[in-house]
Nucleic acid binder design. Structure first.
Lengths: 192, 192
DNA sequence: TTGCAAAACTAATGACATTCGTTTATAATG
DNA sequence: CATTATAAACGAATGTCATTAGTTTTGCAA
């Protein structure tokens, strides 16, 4: 009686992404996912190497989306302006896909070559924005680390509810990104 | 035959902290904790409201430790110098107690008045460092948000393995904190 | 048409948090 | 000093979870 469903690793991953967006990252359970795919939990193991594998796929897809978003945001811009565009796109992604953003962050802990590569391509976008101004690679690495720290820190603290005071969160973010953009643009003068 | 152990909520929380530092935050399991306390899992429920309660306690203790660490670091200093001291202490705490730092971060999601208060006292330390220079409260809030974002972002990305390139991580951190300290010290001149 | 591999299933295992009802030991009371 | 009430520990059970083993079914290819 069990007819063959059209299950594929990619299809399972896609459904897992939808599930994460609806029920949260921790709502991704083998049972729930199997239900949605019209299948019993055990059947998933024919296509996928357990829950860890599924979560890795979700992380990978999240990173691709984030990378595309920030890459688009920097197109046609340069220097501090481009950096601000990337910052806005980064935060916008975290806002519109909070669960995928969590998946992205959790991913780094799980060592996986594919994930590492996806992570590098996110960093690459930022480097391409910054490198023309900073000139050398080492300076870019340091700067990008600071930029990423600010971005990730802000959106995760914001998500976690640390910024619930009355002061305007938008202004806090704008001020932070302006400072970073200025730091970048003023770099041409001296070596920090 | 079951003699009374000297269990208290505080004692359980302390043991949970030790367990977290040894086996990781996810190693805190009712079973493992009960074993260490020489008791059966069910017995813990006489003192504590389930695993969630235990995790909240771990978060609370972590926050107290972090608050004490950064407060000490700022003593006798002011302005950018004090800010750099706080930054170093913040990162040092995250390094020496990575699991407690995770507990602190996870905590904010779980709404809990005690945790919120502990979180506010961490922010308070930073405001006391920054307020004399910035003068008004609103500017302080924005600045502290940026500072916390940079701190948290850096240490969590670092922990997650995002900074595995060959460039010196210490230098990246120093550069970031220097930039923040300068931004603070140069604030006296104009209003950013 | 037959057979074989892929994919679905049933059933079971072991970790986990949690609850219920029972028993025991201690501390307070007479 | 005896008794009793209560706090605390317990055994046993439930339900959820991921995962595995072994079995059955299906659909395509020979």
């Amino acid at each position: 009686m069990p007819p063959k469903r059209g299950l594929t690793p990619a299809g399972i991953a896609d459904e897992a992404v939808l599930l994460a967006e609806e029920r949260g990252l921790d709502g991704i359970t083998v049972q729930a996912l199997a239900d949605r795919l019209g299948v019993k939990p055990a059947s998933l193991y024919n296509h996928v190497d357990g829950l860890g594998d599924i979560l890795r796929s979700v992380s990978r897809l999240s990173m691709l989306q984030l990378e595309a978003a920030i890459r688009d945001a920097a197109v046609g811009l340069s220097g501090g302006t481009a950096l601000k565009g990337v910052a806005l796109a980064y935060r916008a992604f975290a806002h519109s896909h909070p669960e995928l953003y969590k998946a992205y962050i959790r991913s780094a802990s799980l060592e996986d070559p594919e994930l590492e590569e996806a992570g590098r391509s996110i960093a690459r976008v930022m480097h391409r924005v910054v490198l023309p101004t900073l000139g050398e690679m080492d300076a870019s690495v340091h700067f990008v680390r600071g930029f990423r720290s600010a971005m990730h820190g802000f959106v995760s603290l914001e998500e976690a509810g640390f910024f619930h005071g009355k002061a305007d969160v938008e202004q806090s973010f704008r001020q932070m990104t302006d400072r970073l953009a200025n730091a970048l643009d003023e770099y041409t003068a001296q070596g920090v």
